[in-house]
């Protein structure tokens, strides 16, 4: 049977994609950020996941205000990098995993989580930046990817508790898929940041680090954080951190921390990154 071996959390700041695309990762500004991913690149090369289930949000790219799915699973064969206003990123197409994605869609919906099923969509920096952070500049991504888009643009996003619970349902779905494949789940976005209004630039290092502590050892506590606390304490865009809870929900109660990295700033944002493995 398929299994989820590990979870990765990482910010997905668009500027990081630009740094990779322009080979600027070793400059004074970016080096401390990318140094924190050196372990991760080696780790993922050794782990060789067959499929990454990648939890991210679309930033008004594939989904405008025409249609705003709370949870959307990409079941297509292939997803193209989106033109976000300045041309698409020069990165490979993202190859989907339709068999597993459709299985997860069916299983998770039958566990009472109503997913939107997406066959065609372009994927923006929310999805491609995490791939670049872990895999670097490549001709082709080394694994299949199931995009899982969570609405965090239109208020209200799903609650942290809902995200945590859906992670559990995703794990059950993966573990009932009849193929011996290694699946990782990545939760992306965050950490504290506010991109808009006179309060833009808000960063809350103490809160971010407490959140990582709780996510690791007390995920039920982290899951109970309400929307207003994210908005008030971590900035309006810090609410992306609910997506880390989807990842955490799909792991065991006890996890081993393989790697942890935190850096301020990247553009307007606090960078956070975790690698968690299920305890044997």
């Amino acid at each position: 049977m398929a299994h989820i071996s590990a979870g990765v959390a990482t910010s997905h700041v668009p500027l990081l994609g630009r740094a990779v695309d322009t080979r600027d990762t070793q400059s004074e500004y970016f080096k401390p950020i990318f140094d924190g991913y050196e372990f991760s690149k080696k780790w993922v090369a050794e782990e060789k996941p067959d499929v990454v289930f990648l939890v991210y949000n679309d930033h008004a790219t594939a989904f405008s205000l025409d249609l705003i799915p709370t949870f959307a699973i990409g079941t297509g064969e292939k997803f193209k990098p989106a033109d976000e206003g300045f041309g698409p990123r020069p990165v490979p197409d993202v190859m989907g995993s339709p068999d597993l994605a459709w299985h997860i869609a069916q299983s998770v919906i039958q566990q009472d989580f109503d997913l939107t099923i997406v066959n065609e969509m372009d994927v923006d920096h929310g999805l491609t930046v995490p791939l670049s952070m872990l895999f670097g500049q490549v001709e082709a991504w080394p694994c299949q990817v199931i995009p899982f888009a969570v609405n965090v643009v239109q208020f209200p996003p799903p609650s942290g508790q809902r995200c945590y619970n859906i992670g559990k349902a995703i794990r059950r779905a993966v573990e009932s898929f009849d193929a011996d494949i290694n699946v990782q789940i990545w939760g992306t976005g965050g950490m504290s940041h506010q991109l808009q209004g006179p309060r833009a630039g808000l960063i809350n290092q103490a809160w971010d680090n407490q959140f990582m502590d709780d996510l690791i050892t007390r995920p039920e506590t982290a899951a109970r954080i309400d929307h207003v606390e994210y908005l008030r304490e971590t900035g309006s865009e810090g609410i992306e951190m609910v997506m880390w809870l989807v990842m955490r929900g799909a792991l065991s109660e006890q996890v081993n921390v393989r790697h942890r990295h935190y850096h301020v700033p990247c553009s307007n944002t606090a960078i956070g990154h975790l690698i968690l493995e299920n305890s044997a």
Binding site: R199, G201, L202, I203, Q205, V264
Partner: peptide, 12 residues
Amino acid sequence: MDAGGRTPDGNR
């Protein structure tokens, strides 16, 4: 931002 961003203190 380089100095750590806008503090939440007084901005909540």
